[in-house]
Design a protein around this nucleic acid. Structure first.
Lengths: 337, 337
DNA sequence: TGTTAGCAATCAAGTCTACCGAGTGCCAAG
DNA sequence: CTTGGCACTCGGTAGACTTGATTGCTAACA
C-alpha cells in the first residue's frame, strides 16, 4: 500500500496527471498503454485506474470517459510523483539574464519580475514587496509644499520611500522643518520600522509640539509601507485557462483584492506549504485554481513572497521550478548591496 | 432627413438603444409598441426600423430577430438622442461624501477614486495620475543607503515623490550629499519638471562632478514620474460583460498594458472626444468596447484623465454622468490646497 | 398619404431520435 | 497476475421536426 513512486500504479497516476495537464482532456487506458514506458495492456491499466479511483486519486466524469485527477491526485503527484522541478539551464540563463540587466529601483524590479514570472509560466503571477517591518529607517525629512502643507518623507534601508502629506498646524517654516527632520532622522536612524513608537523630544516646547505632530505622519507613513508593494500580472492568462466566464470573473475578482491574495500567500508560507491545490487553501472562489508560493529573502531573512496562480491542471513542475529559480535569483540580487 | 431628436424615427432609435442596453437582447417591434410613450402600431415601427436599418443605425442579426444598434446607432444616441447624463442628486451626494472623507495622499486618493468609479458604473475604470511635466519641483535630496548607494528623492508641488537609487562614485559622504541636495533644491525649486535640463554648478570641482552625476538620477526620476500613476480597477467586470472568454482575454490583456490604455485615453481627449465606441478608437482588441473619458484639472489646468471601459452596450448616460461628476469633484479636491 | 391589421415567410433555438465511438468493467483463457 | 475479447454505458453529434419570435409585404383604412 502506498508503496513507492516506482510501482506501476504510481507510474500510471503520474502519467494520467501529466497527460491531463498537457491536453486538458480525460485520459483513457488506450492512450496510456501506447505511452513509451508502459509495458502493460490497456486492460491492466484499466484495473489499476479503477483502483486509483477507489483510492480517490482519479475521477471519472462519466462512464464512457477517461479519468481525470482529483485534488488528492494532484497532491500526490506534487508530493511524490512529479519529476524534478529543475527548470533546466535555458530557463536558468533566461532568469539570470533578466536579473543581470534588471532595473535598480526596487518597485520596478519587482514589477518586472512579476512580468517575467507570467511570461515564463503562462500563469498569473504575484510578487509582494519586501515587508517593511524589519527594514531600518535611514532618513526622515519634512518638505513644505505650501505654507500650510508639509510632506513627510521616510527613506528606509531597502531604498523604499514612504511619504505622508499633512496639513501643518501653523505657517510652515523651512528652518523648523529641517530641524525636526534632522532630529527625526537622528532619532529613528537604524531603528526598524516596526519600532517607530515615540517621537524625538525637543527642548523648545513649540518644536516639541510640532515634532509630536509630524511623528504621527511618520508612523502612518511606515504603517502603510507594506500596502504599496503588491504586484500582480498575467490576469488575462486566467481568462485563457478557464472555459466558463463565471470562473474567470470569480478568480479575477479575487486577484483584484490584493490584500486577500497576500494574506493567502503568507498563510500558505507560514504553514510551510509551497503548493495549494483546489480547495486546500480555503478560498472558495479559487477552488478551481492552484497556488504556488516561494519566499524570497534579503540577507537570509525571508521578507517577501512570489506566487503563481493558475488552474489546478497547471504544469506544477514548471511552476514550482520557475518560482524557486526566480526566488533564488531575486534573493541574491536584493542581498548584493 | 435627420430632422431632430423628436421625430418618431429618432424616438424609436433611442428606444431600441435603451432597451438593448437594458436587456442585451435584440429588440422587436412588439416590445417597442408596448412602450408607454409609443402611440403607433408594431407595423409602423417595423417600417421605421427598416428605414433605420437602411440608414445604418440598426442591424438585424437574422431575419427572425429584433434589431440591435450598430456603432453608428450608438454614436447618434450618444450625440443627439441620449437623455441627460445628469447622474442625479443621490449619486452627486455619494461622490461628494466620498471626497469629503477621502485620503490625503494623492496616490491613494486616485486609487480609491478608481474603485469609486467602478462601483458606481459597474465598468472597468482608469484614472491616470496628474501629469508631472507641469508640476513644480519643491525639493531634491540625496540620502545614503550605504557607503556606495545613494537614493535621490525628488518632491514636486503635487506632493508626488519620485526617487532613484544609484551607485555612488566613491564613498558617500553625508555632508557632500546634503550640500548637493541643497544646491539642487535651490537650482530646481519652482521650476517645472519638464525643465530639468542641466545640473547646478559647484565651485569645488569634485562636488561639481558628483553633482553632474546625481543630476542624471534626478532627470531619470522625474522622467519616470508619469509612469507610476495609472490606476485600473474593475477588470473583473469585463468578465461579467462578455459571454466569450476570448473577448474577455483580449480586453483584459489590453487593460494590463497600462501605457496603451493611457495613450488611448489621451489621444481621445486631445481629439476632443469624450466617448469612443467600438472600432472608433482603432484598438482592434477593444472593438466590442466603448471608452468614456473625462479630463480633470488642478487649478484650471487639465492634468489627468478619468476613463471608463465596458461593452458597447454600456449605459452611456450613467457612465458619462459619473465620469463628469467625479472629474469635477476630483478637480475641486485637487485644486483646494 | 400615412397608418394599420393580417398573413405568409424566415430562421434561431429547442426537442426528439438515432447512432457513433470512446472508453469502461468483467469474464474467461493464457 | 495479465490479457484479449466483448457487452455495456453514455456523452456528443447529426438530422428531422417543432416552436415561437419577428419580420416584410400587401391590402384595407382613416
Amino acid at each position: 500500500m502506498n508503496a513507492g513512486v516506482d510501482d506501476r500504479r504510481s507510474t500510471i497516476l503520474r502519467a494520467v496527471v501529466e497527460a491531463y495537464i498537457d491536453a486538458a482532456e480525460p485520459v483513457g487506458s488506450a492512450y496510456l498503454a501506447a505511452l513509451p514506458g508502459m509495458r502493460v495492456s490497456p486492460a491492466t491499466i484499466r484495473n489499476e485506474m479503477s483502483a486509483l479511483e477507489g483510492e480517490g486519486y482519479l475521477h471519472q466524469p462519466h462512464t464512457s470517459a477517461g479519468r481525470v485527477p482529483t485534488e488528492k491526485g494532484y497532491r500526490r503527484y506534487v508530493d511524490e510523483l512529479m519529476t524534478s522541478a529543475d527548470p533546466g539551464p535555458d530557463r536558468a540563463d533566461q532568469v539570470q539574464g533578466f536579473f543581470a540587466k534588471a532595473h535598480q529601483e526596487i518597485e520596478e524590479l519587482l514589477s518586472s519580475t512579476t512580468r517575467l514570472l507570467t511570461r515564463m509560466t503562462d500563469l498569473a503571477a504575484v510578487v509582494t514587496g519586501p515587508s517593511a517591518h524589519r527594514a531600518r529607517i535611514v532618513s526622515v525629512q519634512l518638505v513644505a509644499l505650501s505654507s500650510r502643507t508639509v510632506v513627510v518623507v521616510v527613506v528606509d534601508a531597502n531604498g523604499s520611500v514612504e511619504k505622508r502629506t499633512i496639513v501643518w498646524p501653523g505657517e510652515a517654516d523651512s528652518g523648523q522643518l529641517a530641524e525636526i527632520g534632522n532630529a527625526m532622522t537622528a532619532h529613528f536612524r537604524d531603528r526598524e520600522v516596526r519600532d517607530v513608537d515615540s517621537p524625538p523630544r525637543f527642548e523648545d516646547s513649540e518644536l516639541d509640539k510640532l515634532g509630536a505632530y509630524a511623528f504621527v505622519a511618520v508612523r502612518e507613513a511606515v504603517r502603510d509601507a507594506d500596502r504599496d508593494g503588491v504586484f500582480i500580472e498575467g490576469t488575462s492568462r486566467i481568462a485563457a485557462s478557464f472555459g466558463a466566464v463565471e470562473t474567470v470573473r470569480d478568480v479575477i475578482s479575487i486577484l483584484e483584492r490584493h490584500y486577500l491574495v497576500v494574506t493567502l500567500m503568507r498563510s500558505l508560507l507560514s504553514r510551510g506549504q509551497g503548493v495549494a491545490i483546489g480547495s486546500e487553501h480555503g478560498v472558495s472562489s479559487l477552488k478551481e485554481c492552484a497556488v504556488v508560493v516561494a519566499p524570497y529573502s534579503v540577507d537570509g531573512v525571508e521578507v517577501g513572497t512570489i506566487g503563481l496562480i493558475g488552474p489546478t491542471r497547471m504544469n506544477y513542475a514548471s511552476a514550482i521550478g520557475v518560482a524557486n529559480l526566480v526566488s533564488e535569483n531575486l534573493s541574491r540580487r536584493l542581498s548584493e548591496g
